[in-house]
């Protein structure tokens, strides 16, 4: 049934086709000649403007993480075991038992209710940052699945400083996205929000209420 709909739709479109198909429109992308330091500054300003939290940390990011989680009374942290972060995020924590570490090991079907109810925070890496808009870019992996950055009310993300691109267009071009797209490429710019009630901003409507970015030095994260 859908097939005849298909041929009729295409036939109607083709009977309306102009004489010569127009060529692909290639649009020159806006470019910025920002230095790495400028990109980082811009990234931070833009993300903070939409209630994202940005911390510049060194090799001691695990300590920072612990501090942030303790401040918020986080009791459970979802993370990607055997992922880009390599060994446990809790190495060197003053009190390793304060937060229960939960690796995302099994398909979501086996523990969906618990994911929604029992996890206070999720920790992920990311593929890149975008300076122009203050965005994080995530591609899902077997180790760091999609729901990690969505379901827990707090999302902490590690971003390597040299993965901050000036613009989305630049990122796509340099990383060659058109050669192959993932299941879900995602740009995250701040915590979840809505202005549907009297145009007043309110946070954590469905996605995380808090987005915390730890900007770390290049090489901190082992992954691709």
């Amino acid at each position: 049934m859908s097939n005849s709909a298909r041929s009729r739709i295409l036939a109607r479109l083709r009977s309306a086709q102009p004489d010569a198909p127009r060529p692909d429109v290639v649009v020159p992308a806006r470019r910025f000649d920002w230095t790495p330091a400028e990109r980082l500054t811009r990234f931070r300003e833009c993300l903070e403007a939409v209630h994202g939290e940005v911390h510049l940390v060194g090799g001691d990011w695990r300590q920072h993480l612990f501090g942030l989680l303790s401040q918020r009374g986080v009791r459970s942290l979802l993370y990607g075991d055997a992922g880009p972060l390599g060994a446990s995020p809790a190495i060197g924590w003053p009190d390793p038992d304060a937060v229960r570490l939960i690796p995302y090991l099994k398909p979501v079907e086996t523990w969906r209710e618990s994911l929604f109810a029992d996890i206070d925070a999720g920790l992920t890496t990311c593929r890149a940052g975008i300076a122009e808009t203050g965005s994080l870019v995530l591609w899902p992996t077997p180790q760091e699945p999609r729901l990690m950055s969505l379901v827990p009310p707090i999302h902490v993300c590690l971003l390597e400083a040299d993965l901050i691109y000036s613009t989305f267009a630049e990122l796509m071009a340099v990383q060659g996205w058109a050669r192959g797209m993932p299941t879900n490429a995602l740009a995250i710019t701040g915590p979840s929000k809505s202005a549907d009630i009297e145009q007043t901003l309110t946070y954590g409507v469905h996605g995380p209420k808090e987005l915390i970015v730890l900007v770390v030095a290049p090489g901190t994260v082992a992954g691709p």
Binding site: K106, P145, T183, L186, I188, G190, S192, G207
Partner: peptide
Amino acid sequence: TYFNMISSPRRLGEK
């Protein structure tokens, strides 16, 4: 806040 680009259903190994 979110810009999603969906290209496929769950792939092998994804959870």
